[in-house]
Amino acid sequence: MAAAAAAGAGPEMVRGQVFDVGPRYTNLSYIGEGAYGMVCSAYDNVNKVRVAIKKISPFEHQTYCQRTLREIKILLRFRHENIIGINDIIRAPTIEQMKDVYIVQDLMETDLYKLLKTQHLSNDHICYFLYQILRGLKYIHSANVLHRDLKPSNLLLNTTCDLKICDFGLARVADPDHDHTGFLTEYVATRWYRAPEIMLNSKGYTKSIDIWSVGCILAEMLSNRPIFPGKHYLDQLNHILGILGSPSQEDLNCIINLKARNYLLSLPHKNKVPWNRLFPNADSKALDLLDKMLTFNPHKRIEVEQALAHPYLEQYYDPSDEPIAEAPFKFDMELDDLPKEKLKELIFEETARFQPGYRS
């Protein structure tokens, strides 16, 4: 834990890192770190609560700039109880001085990944967590956004079992017609939660990839272990087919990539493993919904509104309290091709509203 900075004593240090967030945020305490930044909790002297502050230093890398800009653009436009918001952003007053960006968010005690390492969940908890994931996802999908990296560590939890989806750095506007060349190379989302079509096709992607990830998360809540822990690309596919069985001819016809289709045709026939054999203690309604989410063919996979209306979630289902976005989200430009200098300018502009004396 960093010592509390005395008023006016300059930035606090946390594990050798400068955290320049005073005077409003003090009493910093280390939480963890990701690929390009550290997260601390801090005391907000204005709202009198502890908050989470993520320090991001992305400006050396085009990919990190892209992810940072995506996350900020999306989260500043989203407003939903099951999606983490941005409360404040701290950065230098000029673009030349801006080396880091500090993002202030609600402090959540833990995440689903940490929880599943230590606790076996009751059916009631599984049901409530799944409902909140789908409630947040309904809003995301209504904005025409794909999260693309749903996994237990991106689901934040607090002691009252509130759940918030975080990390929109890989999110995209849904565009089933656009052929994202190089899709697989830039697709760094965790393999275990990846839909089979991501490994088999490169053309376009749809909201059904997020539903697949939610199915993987439900299976993990039922058993405290990942359902498809593939060691590499082909191993991942083999794990999936080992449980779902061989795809039907109709399902194979959806695979545009001939090499991928021929690979699947070359494999020995596998039978589907019954879900109640894998999860003998699970609620039968939970397994019915799991089956509809972990469907090989993305066109037959359940959609988020149908999933919310499934009998497993009937005690929570309330369409009048499951809000959607006001308007579909649009990125003005494809960020993939922009140089990091341009992305830095866009991050600077996007964060201006939090600067003292800002006038829109």
Score class of each variant (00 low, 15 high):
residue 212 W to E: 11
residue 87 N to W: 02
residue 114 K to S: 10
residue 299 H to K: 10
residue 260 A to N: 02
residue 14 V to T: 09
residue 328 P to R: 04
residue 90 I to H: 01
residue 356 P to G: 05
residue 246 S to C: 13
residue 197 E to K: 11
residue 56 I to G: 15
residue 297 N to V: 10
residue 169 G to T: 02
residue 43 Y to A: 10
residue 270 K to F: 10
residue 260 A to W: 02
residue 281 N to G: 03
residue 51 V to S: 11
residue 121 L to H: 05
residue 35 A to R: 12
residue 36 Y to N: 15
residue 267 L to K: 03
residue 228 F to W: 08
residue 175 D to A: 15
residue 197 E to D: 15
residue 35 A to L: 06
residue 355 Q to G: 02
residue 36 Y to F: 14
residue 61 H to V: 03
residue 30 Y to S: 11
residue 99 K to Q: 13
residue 71 E to T: 09
residue 322 E to K: 11
residue 65 C to N: 11
residue 181 T to W: 11
residue 91 R to M: 02
residue 257 N to D: 08
residue 180 H to R: 00
residue 85 G to T: 10
residue 284 S to D: 03
residue 143 A to E: 11
residue 324 I to M: 05
residue 172 R to G: 07
residue 197 E to R: 12
residue 341 E to D: 14
residue 274 P to A: 07
residue 220 E to V: 13
residue 263 Y to M: 04
residue 285 K to N: 14
residue 22 G to Y: 04
residue 148 R to K: 12
residue 198 I to M: 11
residue 41 S to Q: 03
residue 181 T to K: 09
residue 323 P to N: 04
residue 148 R to F: 10
residue 224 N to F: 10
residue 114 K to R: 11
residue 122 S to C: 12
residue 340 K to C: 10
residue 11 P to C: 14
residue 264 L to W: 00
residue 159 T to N: 13
residue 349 E to Q: 05
residue 325 A to N: 03
residue 103 I to T: 00
residue 336 D to W: 12
residue 344 K to T: 10
residue 85 G to D: 14
residue 339 P to M: 10
residue 121 L to C: 10
residue 23 P to D: 06
residue 54 K to P: 01
residue 101 V to A: 12
residue 82 N to K: 10
residue 130 L to D: 07
residue 211 I to C: 10
residue 11 P to I: 04
residue 77 R to D: 03
residue 33 E to M: 00
residue 6 A to Y: 12
residue 7 A to M: 13
residue 32 G to C: 14
residue 38 M to R: 15
residue 138 K to Y: 12
residue 134 L to V: 13
residue 43 Y to H: 11
residue 143 A to M: 03
residue 265 L to P: 07
residue 48 K to W: 02
residue 119 Q to M: 07
residue 169 G to I: 01
residue 198 I to N: 14
residue 131 Y to A: 02
residue 344 K to E: 04
residue 31 I to M: 15
residue 198 I to Q: 04
residue 116 L to K: 08
residue 173 V to W: 03
residue 327 A to K: 04
residue 38 M to S: 13
residue 14 V to C: 09
residue 327 A to W: 03
residue 180 H to T: 05
residue 299 H to C: 09
residue 357 G to F: 04
residue 308 L to D: 02
residue 347 I to W: 15
residue 33 E to A: 05
residue 270 K to L: 11
residue 86 I to T: 00
residue 304 V to Y: 04
residue 75 L to W: 15
residue 189 A to V: 11
residue 302 I to D: 08
residue 181 T to C: 07
residue 160 T to H: 05
residue 225 R to M: 03
residue 240 I to R: 01
residue 68 T to R: 12
residue 70 R to G: 03
residue 293 M to W: 02
residue 276 N to T: 05
residue 319 P to Q: 15
residue 169 G to F: 07
residue 2 A to E: 00
residue 99 K to W: 01
residue 178 H to C: 09
residue 251 D to W: 00
residue 154 N to A: 06
residue 175 D to E: 13
residue 324 I to W: 12
residue 183 F to N: 11
residue 196 P to I: 01
residue 256 I to P: 06
residue 339 P to F: 02
residue 212 W to V: 05
residue 45 N to G: 13
residue 43 Y to S: 13
residue 334 E to P: 10
residue 269 H to M: 04
residue 298 P to V: 09
residue 9 A to D: 12
residue 20 D to M: 02
residue 305 E to T: 02
residue 358 Y to G: 09
residue 75 L to F: 08
residue 142 S to C: 04
residue 246 S to A: 08
residue 71 E to F: 00
residue 130 L to F: 00
residue 203 K to R: 12
residue 153 S to H: 01
residue 157 L to Y: 08
residue 34 G to E: 13
residue 277 R to A: 12
residue 355 Q to H: 13
residue 227 I to K: 04
residue 268 P to C: 04
residue 132 Q to R: 06
residue 278 L to F: 09
residue 2 A to W: 00
residue 72 I to E: 06
residue 345 E to H: 02
residue 86 I to Y: 09
residue 172 R to P: 08
residue 270 K to Y: 06
residue 12 E to W: 08
residue 342 K to H: 08
residue 177 D to G: 04
residue 302 I to S: 00
residue 170 L to I: 11
residue 10 G to H: 08
residue 225 R to E: 11
residue 104 V to Q: 10
residue 286 A to W: 01
residue 122 S to T: 05
residue 179 D to V: 15
residue 275 W to Y: 08
residue 49 V to P: 13
residue 250 E to D: 13
residue 3 A to R: 13
residue 174 A to Q: 13
residue 262 N to Q: 11
residue 359 R to V: 05
residue 2 A to G: 10
residue 172 R to Y: 01
residue 310 H to P: 08
residue 17 Q to M: 04
residue 127 C to N: 03
residue 216 C to V: 11
residue 155 L to K: 04
residue 5 A to G: 06
residue 306 Q to N: 03
